[in-house]
Computed example of a mutant assay.
Amino acid sequence: MTVINTNIKSLVSQNAMIKNNRDLSDAMQQLSTGKRINSAADDAAGLAISSRMTSQITGLNQAIRNGNDSVSMLQTTEGAMIEMTNMLQRMRELAVQSSNDTYTDVDRGYLDLEFQQLKAEVNRITKDTEWNGMPILNGTVENDDGTFGKFEFQIGANDGQIITHTVSDMGFRDDAKAIFKTDTPNSVGVSQQSSLTLSGTYKPGDVINVKIGETSANYTVVDADLTGADDDANLITIATNLALATGATMGNTTVLASSNVLTFTADTAGSGFTAKATNDLVDVGALKNVQSLTVLNNTDSNTSMRELDVALNRISTERAGLGAVMNRLTYAVDNLANVSQNTSESRSRIMDADYAKASSELARTQIISQAATAMLAQANQQPQSVLQLLQG
């Protein structure tokens, strides 16, 4: 049948060109992006799988960085302990030297000068050693579960993939004291005044008890009290909060805080009160046995030798724990890198374009496109033959 209105051959050529151009566009897109899957239409299941793999890979890569940061923190911690060990060894050497009776009391006093300076420096290192702004040797870093000194290292791409290590409080406190002093005795026409001076180092959980006459009040030191730059700043905060706590409960007495000193004044002239304050201190610090050591005589020197052996053993135990965790973290990081590599390779098989295949497809579709264009031209010319019938 010969017709003009409907050119079947032209329609067939057009449909073939549309399909071929779609394949040509896909091939060009793959070659341009390097990806086999550029939209969900390309491979819906493959896109979902690759998306999950991408989350896993980025999580693994961040976990690798977490692990390396964790090792760095622990190395900093152990580095401080190395110097503490060196100083304790020197202190023990001084104790051995001082225990010899060839030295006079004056000589031992000279030895004790260095001994006390080294002891103070050991304690200072435990308070001032920081990593990323966190004091890592004094047990004041609080975990979300309320545990002090506990660190959770996220070594995995998913929730709960952690390695936990607790760094002990390696220091010892400077003696914390709350001492009452009566400045003006009770007499006719004069209101009694007493002052309470706070000194030393307080820790979370320490309780200060103040008793005025028959009324007493307790104040428990909390973390917020200890955020100052040093012990002096912390004492001012504690004194302020202690004044608020006692002033709210003490009858007939005015309580004022100035720096680290609280002043208690009887509201009625001529009236007086008995006053005292006590500390209930939390026992903290792995090296607390070193705090009161001296080498001023033979007996003290021998005691120092024994206690320093205990302190050195405690540091060695802590360092051994740090070393074990650092080795574990190193192996964990190596494993994470291996898993990340293999997961990336798996994702590549799903997502990435095969350039040999895509370039062959491009060449094929380009040739077909040219041929289809030629055939469409021929199909459009064929209706012209109908004019031959009309000319007869």
Rank of each mutant, 00 (worst) to 15 (best):
V3I: 13
I8Q: 02
S10I: 12
S13H: 08
Q14V: 15
R22I: 08
D26K: 06
D26Q: 12
Q29S: 09
T33P: 11
G34Y: 06
R36C: 02
R36S: 06
S39V: 07
A40P: 04
D42W: 12
A45K: 04
L47V: 03
S50H: 11
S50F: 05
R52D: 13
M53K: 11
T54C: 02
T58H: 05
L74M: 15
Q75F: 08
T77N: 12
E78Y: 12
I82C: 03
E83R: 01
V96S: 00
Q97S: 15
R108V: 09
Y110G: 14
Y110K: 14
L111K: 14
L113P: 03
F115P: 11
Q117Y: 04
R124H: 04
R124M: 03
T126D: 03
D128P: 06
G133C: 00
P135C: 02
L137W: 02
G139K: 05
T140S: 08
E142A: 08
N143D: 15
G146T: 03
T147R: 08
F148V: 09
Q154A: 06
I155H: 05
I155D: 14
T164A: 01
T164G: 00
S168H: 13
D169E: 09
M170W: 05
A178Q: 05
I179C: 05
F180P: 08
T184N: 10
P185D: 07
P185T: 08
N186V: 05
V188D: 15
V188K: 08
L196H: 00
T197W: 10
L198V: 01
D206P: 01
V222C: 12
A229K: 00
D230N: 10
D231Y: 10
D232N: 10
N234L: 11
I238T: 03
T240R: 12
L242A: 00
N252C: 04
T254N: 07
L256F: 07
F264P: 01
T265N: 06
A266I: 05
D280K: 10
L281S: 02
L296D: 08
S301L: 10
E307Q: 11
L308T: 11
R314C: 02
I315H: 07
M326G: 10
Y331N: 10
L336N: 06
V339L: 07
S340W: 00
S340A: 12
S340K: 01
E345D: 11
S346K: 10
S346I: 11
R347Q: 13
I350T: 15
I350V: 14
A353K: 01
S360N: 09
E361W: 03
I368Q: 09
Q370K: 13
A372V: 11
T373Y: 10
T373R: 05
A374H: 09
A374F: 00
L376E: 04
Q382M: 11
